[in-house]
Computed example of a mutant assay.
Amino acid sequence: MKTRKTWFITGASRGFGLEITKAVLATGDQVVATVRSKASELAAQFDNHPNLLVVTLDVTREEQAKEAAQAVIERFDKIDILLNNAGYGLLSAVEEATAHINITTPIRIKTAKEFAENLSIHPNHLNALLKKHTGQNVSTHIRNRLLEETKVLLVQTEWPLQDISYSVGFAEQPNFNLFFKKNTGLTPAEFRRNYRAS
């Protein structure tokens, strides 16, 4: 019988933090998921799962960290695994890179090697960790995140395609168009048109 572990995952409201929270709960382990606000919304998203405790935590505020730790002890007695996704942890590099995308701060991390270098670990080790905990490798996570951010920019902004291309890390728009079409079956322009027509 598997020993149940307690995971403490910061930055669990979206992106990698959210995906890892889903994956860990699916294994039967317990999760303390931290969010900066709206803890009840994340709990509701997981149907108030009995193995999930959602707490409000800004990792830069010491008093909130102490309150979160106390809540963990009261509910689960201990923390076995800490995944600092909100700060400089295993998956934070891509989250940070995509948090404030715009034309003046484009995404800089686009490859597994760049991601691993940012975390000061070997790319093979990073791939093994992500594969073990999420079932996907680094390149897949990065690709999916770039696609997610691109789709948001296409439907929520009026930015020209060239600006979106540059913002998500492509110096040349034709390369961006090929990347997007290869992964979605549509060019960025077609995706935007279809969304607006629906």
Rank of each mutant, 00 (worst) to 15 (best):
K5T: 01
F8R: 13
I9Y: 14
I9T: 12
G11A: 13
G11N: 14
R14W: 11
F16K: 12
L18I: 11
E19C: 00
I20Q: 06
K22G: 04
K22M: 00
V24D: 00
L25Y: 01
L25D: 02
L25M: 02
A26Q: 01
T27S: 00
Q30F: 02
Q30T: 07
V31T: 05
A33F: 12
V35Y: 09
K38F: 02
A39V: 01
A44T: 06
Q45C: 08
F46I: 01
D47F: 03
D47C: 00
N51P: 10
N51Q: 13
N51D: 14
V55F: 03
D58L: 07
V59M: 02
T60R: 09
R61P: 00
E63I: 06
E63N: 08
A65S: 04
K66E: 14
K66V: 04
K66N: 11
E67P: 06
A69R: 11
Q70G: 02
A71R: 15
A71L: 15
D77F: 06
I79V: 15
I81L: 04
L82W: 05
N84T: 00
N85E: 09
A86D: 10
G87E: 02
Y88P: 03
A93T: 06
V94W: 08
T98M: 10
A99N: 07
H100L: 04
I103Y: 10
T104M: 15
T105P: 02
P106I: 08
I109D: 01
A112N: 11
E114C: 07
E114I: 07
A116G: 14
N118H: 12
N118M: 04
S120Q: 13
I121S: 09
N124T: 12
L126K: 07
N127M: 03
L129K: 11
L130Q: 08
H133E: 03
T134M: 05
Q136R: 06
S139A: 15
I142T: 06
I142Q: 07
N144M: 09
L146H: 09
E148D: 15
E149Y: 03
T150Y: 05
V152G: 10
V155D: 08
E158T: 14
E158M: 08
E158P: 01
W159L: 14
L161R: 05
D163W: 02
S165A: 15
S167R: 09
A171E: 15
E172G: 06
P174N: 08
N177E: 14
F179Y: 07
K182C: 00
K182N: 14
T184Q: 12
T184P: 09
T184A: 11
T184R: 11
G185M: 12
G185N: 10
P188S: 09
P188R: 12
A189K: 15
F191M: 06
R192T: 04
N194P: 00
S198A: 09
S198D: 04
